[in-house]
Each structure stands twice: as C-alpha cells, then as structure tokens.
Computed example of a mutant assay.
Amino acid sequence: MTVSESPSHSDNVRRAVLAMPVARALGLEFLRVAPGDVELQLPITDTFSFRPGQLQATAIFAAADFAAVAAAATLLEPGWVNATIDATLKIVAPARGTQLRARGRVVDAGKLLTVCAADVFAVDANDRETLCATLIGTARNVPPSS
C-alpha cells in the first residue's frame, strides 16, 4: 500500500470518523492527521462518566479505537475503508481531567490487515497529561466495491 499524504486524504479520514454518530456524541476533535499517525481529543463530560470528572472505560476505549484505526486508515489507498476486528485496552490510571487525548499509530500495515495502537492520556486544566490507557488493535482493510 502507498501512503497518501494529500490534504484531501487526511480530510477524508476526518470526515469518515466524524460521520459516525458515536464520534459526534463523544465530541471527538482531530488535532493531527498524518500518514500512520493521528491525535484526537474529546472533552471529559459527566455524560460519559461513572463519577463526575472520570470517564467510563467505554469512552476511553472509543477514543483509543478511533485514534488507532484512523491512523491505519491514513495508509489506505483512496477508496479503501477499514474497520476494527480486534482490540485490547489496558487501563493504567483513571481518566480524570478536562480532556482525553488519544494518539494513534500504525504498528504494521498490510494489504488485508493493519495492526495499530493508541496511547490515551487524561489531560488536566494545566494541560498536563497522564497516561491512562493503551490499546493494540487490528483493522481489516476493505477495497472499494466494484
């Protein structure tokens, strides 16, 4: 596969993710989209918290998954799409603060499968980051329909 570095490809990855209702509901925002590398964030709100200011694991997983699989999508040829087929999340600290930042990256890109990962950080009001989770996943790459 060839890495597409065009701004339109990055925009397509952003649009594809933000077209998903759950991404919009979480308030996902892309901070960076580059070949094999994505950074996004979402606000820590009570809507997705099990106690005030502390996100549930589901929202942490979603942020990590979106970052990792979006990073994998940046390496796809135009017209291809991908989807998560497997992922493991390890939570190492509570997700407390004002924002959650997830940095996704590609571990190994193949034609059919891409192994990807993400580190998730809780960000406080002073912009200090604390690692709260790590994800490793596999995305299935799907060619355009004929």
Rank of each mutant, 00 (worst) to 15 (best):
V3S: 01
S4N: 05
E5F: 00
E5H: 00
P7Q: 11
S8Q: 15
S10V: 03
D11I: 09
V13R: 00
R15I: 09
M20R: 15
V22F: 15
G27D: 05
E29F: 08
F30I: 04
V33N: 03
P35N: 01
E39K: 00
L40S: 01
L40H: 06
Q41P: 00
L42V: 11
D46G: 04
F48W: 06
F48N: 01
G53W: 01
Q54F: 11
Q54L: 10
Q56E: 12
A57S: 14
F61S: 06
A62R: 04
A62S: 15
A63L: 09
F66C: 08
A67D: 06
A67L: 02
V69N: 06
A71F: 00
A73D: 07
A73Q: 08
T74Q: 00
T74L: 04
T74D: 04
P78A: 10
P78K: 09
G79E: 05
W80H: 14
A83L: 14
I85T: 15
I85L: 10
T88L: 13
K90E: 14
I91C: 07
I91E: 02
V92K: 09
V92A: 12
V92S: 10
A93H: 15
A93Y: 14
P94H: 07
A95E: 03
A95L: 13
R96K: 14
T98P: 00
L100S: 04
A102G: 11
R103H: 10
G104W: 06
G104V: 01
G104T: 06
V106T: 07
V107I: 13
V107T: 04
D108E: 13
D108V: 06
K111Q: 15
K111S: 14
V115K: 02
V115M: 07
A117L: 10
A117Y: 03
A117M: 12
A122V: 09
D124P: 04
D127C: 12
D127Y: 14
G137W: 02
G137D: 02
R140G: 07
R140M: 15
V142L: 15
V142H: 12
P143S: 12
S145I: 07
S145F: 10
